[in-house]
């Protein structure tokens, strides 16, 4: 088991390194850097000025070297401008003494994520605040979505072809066909718009950042949950119908087990193996939903931060955001692998 975990973690690290390298490369392409220089100094600077600004701020080095610095495995750059020292690990300008005493490495490994150029604050701080907010949202989504989807799926799948099955299946298909930006708009139009007059709920979740109420949090949670729910419910239903036609269910039935017990004792565990993996692999998609919903409802969580970072080419923030999201995806894959092993006795790791 430990060996299995070690191998998985190693694979995860390699993937994360590759992905951050790609993100680093894409965000540090010369047009992006040029745009950054112009946003710092004004749009009307000459190419020479751009070049000298980039040089001064350490952007002129080869991409791989700077990636190493960002990671914290290569020493950060320093620069001596006639006694005034600047550098990756030095805040602003400093004299020789401070510069010498500053640490040589400052990157992700050391816990230094750099500074956000949009929010003018430490990236670590921005991201962790955003993550906390998104965490709350995701928790609510999970609490609504997973039990809901499983119940719908199991109910639909236990008697294939019944009216209940058909009604629930139609409902699931409908929600999977409704992306968040459609369902969000429709829900807001129905429940929050002044034009219709229902006005039961809030069309914005900004106030939920401090104080969660039913009025300001229902719509965002529902919007994300609905889309994922249909998908998971369909998977559960497919898995359930397959299990219900399995030979061992017939065995159980012909042993005299009642229908309720056939479903609860014999079918359920086997039927949940497949959806469990699906739920875990659903995380990358949920992230998508989070970005859309946070933008739509103006909830300043992780997704909103991602959009801000990406649209303003905030390199350091964007890198941190991608690292976090990649890890979320990879960890959910890891959990799904481990959980699969526990749910399915046929696979045992010695």
């Amino acid at each position: 088991m430990l060996l299995f975990l070690a191998r998985k973690t190693l694979g995860m690290l390699v993937t994360a390194l590759c992905l951050t390298l790609i993100v680093f490369f894409l965000t540090n392409l010369s047009p992006n850097l040029e745009k950054l220089a112009k946003s710092e100094l004004g749009a009307r600077i000459t190419d020479d000025e751009v070049a000298s600004w980039l040089d001064k701020n350490g952007y002129a080095q080869p991409t791989l070297v700077r990636y190493g610095e960002w990671l914290g495995v290569l020493p950060g750059w320093t620069r001596d401008n006639d006694g005034e020292f600047t550098g990756r690990c030095i805040d602003g300008k400093a004299d020789a003494e401070t510069a010498a005493s500053a640490s040589r490495f400052c990157g992700v490994v050391q816990g230094d994520w750099g500074e956000s150029s949009v929010f003018k604050r430490d990236v670590g701080e921005v991201v962790s605040r955003a993550l906390k907010l998104t965490g709350k949202l995701m928790l609510c989504v999970m609490l609504v979505m997973v039990p809901g989807a499983l119940i719908v799926g199991v109910l639909a799948g236990m008697r294939e072809g019944s009216r209940l099955d058909r009604s629930l299946s139609t409902l699931s298909i409908l929600t999977t066909a409704t992306p968040e930006y459609v369902s969000g708009v429709v829900l807001v139009a129905i429940f929050a718009s002044s034009a219709v007059g229902l006005k039961w709920l809030n069309g914005s979740a900004t106030s939920a950042m401090d104080n969660i109420t039913i009025a300001n949090f229902t719509l965002p949670v529902l919007t994300i949950a609905l889309y994922g729910m249909g998908y998971i419910a369909r998977m559960t239903r497919a898995s359930m119908t397959e299990v219900m036609t399995a030979q061992y269910i017939r065995t159980a039935r012909l042993k005299g087990v009642s229908f309720y017990n056939v479903v609860m004792k014999h079918a359920l565990r086997n039927a949940l193996i497949a959806p469990f993996t699906v739920i875990m692999l659903q995380f990358p998609w949920l992230l998508n939903g989070v970005v859309i919903v946070e933008t739509l409802f103006n909830y300043k969580g992780f997704g909103w931060t991602l959009v801000q970072a990406a649209s303003n080419n905030d390199i350091e923030l964007l890198l941190a955001v991608s690292v976090v999201s990649v890890f979320v995806v990879l960890i959910s894959q890891l959990i799904s692998d481990i959980g699969y092993v526990f749910l399915n006795p046929r696979i045992r790791i010695t």
Binding site: T15, L26, P31, N32, S325, V326
Partner: peptide
């Protein structure tokens, strides 16, 4: 393929579909 799949789709779009990236020809 897992590498690409581990990327959140929106992030990928934000990285690929910007005028700056188009300028580089990627």
């Amino acid at each position: 393929s897992n590498l690409i799949l581990a990327f959140p789709v929106i992030l990928l779009f934000y990285l690929l579909v910007t005028p700056e990236i188009i300028q580089t020809g990627i």
